[in-house]
């Protein structure tokens, strides 16, 4: 066994002692699956656990600390002031409501846009059109987040494209504000909604559709009673993205939102200008909490395995 395992390519590399060390290591690892697993897992788990989980836990802890208003230093002074402030203050209520409204609107807009194009891609178009559409939709939408937000800034601006398009019918661009933010966010997250719906639609067997129309159902009825129930998990999977991403966004809102405040911009303002990390941490617990509630609700539908 050992003589065979030191096959020619192994020997080329180095001195005999190194080769035998490698061979012994190989034999040892081959026999000890647990050691192999430990070697593979240690670095990634160390990294993700130390960097990420510890950071999330620390964020939770920091929310219960305070900041010295004079020096700006963070003080380890356990209290629930930040959390009660965030939960009790009318400002945070209004901003939370506005952010959740935006998230719901963005999700609905995206689902409405995604359904027809996903249907066409998955079930109607010929193979060539299907492939062309997949590329046509994926490529521009994977392009830079910032560039797309910037594009909407120039579209929505005064004398911009939207003003120019709406001028003949007497309309004008909504400008920078809540509406602009919703449209821009819907544009940004569209691929994340189209993809899961498209995947769910592809999994619907054609035979079911044929059977439905053989039995006399029209297109609308087939969609409502056959297709829709089957793709609900895909729709929910898409909505998790658009919902969660909207709750956490602050850059797009800064770019096209004008003075609109969302949870993200509040967090950012507290980290940057106000230099109050504990309060920012407490504010960031709101979107985190909402997402966990949302995930808990949709978990029962089985959509999580579709992500």
């Amino acid at each position: 066994m050992t003589t065979v395992s030191s096959s020619a390519p192994d020997r080329v590399g180095g001195a005999p002692s190194r080769a035998s060390l490698a061979r012994r290591g190989s034999a040892f690892l081959y026999r000890h699956a647990k050691v192999r697993l430990a070697l593979l897992l240690s670095a990634p788990l160390f990294w993700l656990g130390l960097v990420y989980i510890a950071a999330l836990a620390a964020l939770l802890i920091t929310a219960f600390w305070t900041v010295d208003s004079f020096t700006g230093e963070i003080l380890v002074d356990w209290n629930v002031d930040n959390v009660t402030k965030v939960l009790g203050d009318a400002l945070y209520h209004a901003v939370t409501l506005r952010t959740v409204t935006a998230a719901v609107l963005v999700t609905l807009i995206d689902i409405a846009i995604a359904l027809p194009i996903a249907c066409l891609m998955a079930k109607v178009a010929s193979r060539a059109v299907h492939r062309a559409l997949v590329i046509a939709i994926l490529l521009p939408l994977w392009a830079s987040y910032l560039v797309k937000a910037y594009a909407w800034r120039s579209l929505l601006s005064q004398d911009g494209v939207i003003d120019w398009m709406l001028a003949p019918i007497g309309g004008e661009s909504p400008g920078y504000g809540f509406e602009g933010s919703v449209v821009t966010l819907a544009y940004l997250w569209l691929p994340f909604v189209i993809l899961p719906i498209f995947t769910a639609l592809e999994r619907v067997p054609d035979s079911l559709l044929d059977a439905s129309s053989d039995l006399g159902a029209k297109t609308g009825r087939t969609f409502r009673h056959i297709v829709f129930p089957l793709i609900v998990p895909g729709i929910i999977a898409g909505s998790i993205f658009s919902f969660s991403l909207t709750l956490g966004d602050y850059i797009a809102v800064r770019i096209v939102g004008g003075a609109t405040q969302m949870l993200g911009t509040l967090v950012y303002a507290n980290v940057g200008v106000a230099n109050n990390l504990p309060l920012a941490a407490a504010v960031s617990l709101i979107p985190l909490g909402i997402i966990f509630i949302y995930l808990g609700v949709v978990r029962r539908t089985g959509a999580l395995s579709n992500l």
Partner: peptide, 12 residues
């Protein structure tokens, strides 16, 4: 949400 990851790492 990116902002949670961002502020968690910033804080850490």
């Amino acid at each position: 949400p990116g902002i949670v990851t961002g502020i968690a790492l910033n804080n850490a």
